[in-house]
Amino acid sequence: MLQIANSENVLAEAQNLRESPFAIRGLTVSYDQKPAVFSVDVTIEAGKMTAIVGPNGAGKSTLLKAALGIIKPLSGQVTLMGRPVAQEMHRIAYVPQRASVDWDFPVRVIDVIEMGMFRKTGLLGRLSRADRAHAMSCLGRVGMTDFANRQIGQLSGGQQQRVFLARALAQNADLYLLDEPFAGVDAATEKAIITVLKSLRAEGRTVVAVHHDLTTVPEYFDNVLLLNVRKIAEGPVATAFTEENLQAAYGGRLGTARLNAAAVSG
């Protein structure tokens, strides 16, 4: 009995892994013997927009970074369409949290976008005229064409976020992973970013974003992953984004999280 059930599970599992552009199994990450993410299984649905939601310190960013191998997990496996993610990095574009780069670095906006095309040109290749035009068009999609020659430190927070989204666009990936893309940006930027993300979905690409504003989850996203060190719930917003699951993820902090979200959006 046990044997049969297991083999059915195994078949279904193999199917899930093959069809998911981002499947995480048993991921545990710990800083100094305190797990930031513990034994998390996630199966992201292809062609959908998924929000990763949870309180501060729930391990949302850590989950993304560990899944991408930027930080080393204690255990766990991550696959893209059934293949180890390390071999499929060229199909992934990652937009880190804004604070993680040196804003004083001597690069212009357009130089940053062109970094997104590195994989296309390769080590020795140089950017062609068409490549440069493509970089400009990516900048156009986020409404930043006029800023191409600015040094990146001279932009506002929202503008910087748009530049990093444009760099991801230039990567022409199948899976877009964004870490708090709406944190600290102005309303115009938030609108511009969500428009671009929805257009990516319309093109059949998969979008996963760490998100902190509970009020906009149903409006922006199809699916949700509720996280608080462990996975609390995962699935379509209608079934997974429930009062009960939110209570489990946020505990006593739910009221505060709501208030903050209301303050942000209102």
Binding site: I70, H90, I92, Y94, S100, M115, F118
Partner: peptide, 22 residues
């Protein structure tokens, strides 16, 4: 001259460079 771009990219944004497979 050979490694200019990888060097520049990883100096600017190491996390991003890692996701590029550098």
């Amino acid at each position: 001259a050979l490694f200019w771009r990888p060097l520049a990219i990883s100096t600017f944004d190491e996390g991003f460079a890692a996701t590029l497979g550098l």
